[in-house]
C-alpha cells in the first residue's frame, strides 16, 4: 500500500468516526439520524410525503417530552 492510499483510508476512517460521534450526540438528545429516516421513507413508503429536516426535528422534540420513561435520577 502506498502512502496516498493509506492517507485516503485514514481520512475515510476519521470521517466515519466523526459521523458516528455526531449521530451519538444527536441521539442522546432525542434526535435520530435524519438520513436514515429519509432512506426508510423512500424505500418503505414511497407514496407518503417525507418531512423536511426542520419538521422532523420539531416532531422529535415533541416526542421526547411526551411522557413515557423520562430519564434517570
Amino acid at each position: 500500500m502506498n502512502l496516498d492510499s493509506a492517507r485516503t483510508l485514514l481520512r475515510r476512517h476519521l470521517r466515519e468516526a466523526w459521523r458516528r460521534a455526531v449521530q451519538t450526540g444527536r441521539l442522546i438528545v432525542g434526535v435520530p439520524d435524519y438520513d436514515t429516516y429519509v432512506e426508510h421513507m423512500r424505500r418503505a413508503h414511497p407514496e407518503r410525503a417525507v418531512m423536511s429536516y426542520e419538521a422532523f426535528f420539531a416532531e422529535r422534540l415533541e416526542a421526547r417530552y411526551r411522557g413515557g420513561g423520562g430519564r434517570c435520577c
Binding site: 450526540g25 441521539l27 442522546i28 436514515t36 429519509v38 426508510h40 430519564r71 434517570c72 435520577c73
Partner: peptide
C-alpha cells in the same frame, strides 16, 4: 416496526451512548 422515528435499527455504539446518557443522572 421500523418507522425511521421511534423504531430505528441503530448502530450499537451510538445506541450505547444514548442509553448511558439516559440512565446516568445525579443518583
Amino acid at each position: 416496526r421500523n418507522d425511521g422515528l421511534d423504531y430505528v435499527p441503530t448502530d450499537k455504539w451510538v445506541l450505547y451512548g444514548h442509553h448511558f446518557a439516559a440512565i446516568a443522572g445525579a443518583g
